[in-house]
């Protein structure tokens, strides 16, 4: 058994992911395999160190006390607390990713947390809030193979004081057809195990680029806010949108905008003010990549 597997299945593996330390515990082989593939570039820490503060203690275990041989359901726990119902154990690798997101989106109020992908190029971040099915993750997965830095696939974390994006470069989640599209375009991309038939269909995560992980403490200002929309047959086009509209749309995609009160409005105002705001429709990844590489950020 490898060291990672041993720690995961005993007292917990501690990973530094973005600015958070997770202690992860599980009996599931599928999660051990998934973490061994997707998280190799992340620093692991020694749990017994006196000088370590762990942000989130998480576990995912069979619901039944008799263990995985009887129970077909896997339960995510945050330091013993159960935030959502158990799910079929075949989805364990996806559940751990969703659970890790939940920790940040529910516990952190010092930052504005937006449900959005975010990538960076030449020092400026592009935030892409979008509902599921808009092709946000597929676009992200492609762009980070084309020289963009991955800051986050699901959660855009913005420092309330500086209005800068705090990186959280987790594996990018792909669904259904997107899995094959990315596999075909970029054969060198590393894929984790597939969770089949989840509520979102087949889900598979890809390993974040090594450079994005190495730069996971490097924060940056926002240069653009783009709402992507995949639509079959359309030609790729950026449509400028009003700042008021953009602010309202980002707010409605945020987890803690209303909890933050006026601080939430102030930081979002700062972000939108300094960013170019667009709607973006596309059907071909090649066109999308071309348009993104022609973006001139940081002019506002």
């Amino acid at each position: 058994m490898t060291d990672i597997a041993k720690r995961l299945t005993t007292d917990g593996l501690v990973l530094q992911v973005g600015s958070f330390k997770y202690s992860i515990q599980t009996q599931y082989r599928s999660i051990v395999a998934s973490i061994a593939i997707l998280y190799t570039d992340f620093e692991t820490l020694n749990k017994d160190d006196e000088n370590i503060f762990i942000d989130f203690y998480i576990s995912i275990e069979p619901t039944n006390i008799f263990g995985k041989f009887i129970s077909r359901q896997a339960q995510f726990r945050f330091d013993g607390f159960i935030p959502f119902n158990s799910l079929p154990c075949q989805h364990a690798p996806a559940i751990i990713e969703w659970g890790m997101n939940w920790c940040v989106s529910s516990q952190i109020n010092t930052h504005l947390i937006i449900h959005a992908a975010v990538i960076e190029k030449s020092g400026y971040a592009v935030v892409m809030p979008a509902p599921p099915g808009s092709g946000k993750s597929t676009l992200t997965a492609a762009l980070i193979q084309e020289g963009w830095r991955l800051l986050s696939d699901e959660l855009t974390i913005i420092d309330v004081e500086t209005a800068h994006v705090v990186p959280f470069p987790r594996p990018v989640s792909l669904k259904n057809l997107s899995i094959d599209i990315i596999k075909e375009r970029y054969p060198s991309v590393v894929f984790g195990p597939v969770s089949t038939d989840t509520s979102k269909g087949n889900v598979c995560h890809i390993k974040p680029p090594q450079l994005s992980v190495q730069q996971q403490f490097l924060e940056c200002p926002v240069g653009g806010v783009i709402f992507p929309k995949y639509e079959q047959g359309v030609s790729a086009e950026l449509i400028e949108i009003g700042k008021g509209q953009a602010l309202m749309d980002v707010a409605s995609n945020s987890f803690n905008y209303s909890r933050l009160g006026s601080a939430g409005f102030d930081v979002l105002h700062k972000v939108i003010d300094s960013a170019s705001c667009y709607q973006f429709q596309y059907s071909q990844l090649d066109d999308a990549i071309a348009i993104f590489s022609a973006l001139e950020l940081g002019r506002e």
Binding site: Q107, I108, N109, T110, R259, L260, G261
Partner: peptide
């Protein structure tokens, strides 16, 4: 550590 105290403070204020 502070960010968890501050996060709780934001929550209770809300």
């Amino acid at each position: 550590v502070l960010r968890y105290l501050q996060s709780a403070h934001v929550h209770s204020t809300k």
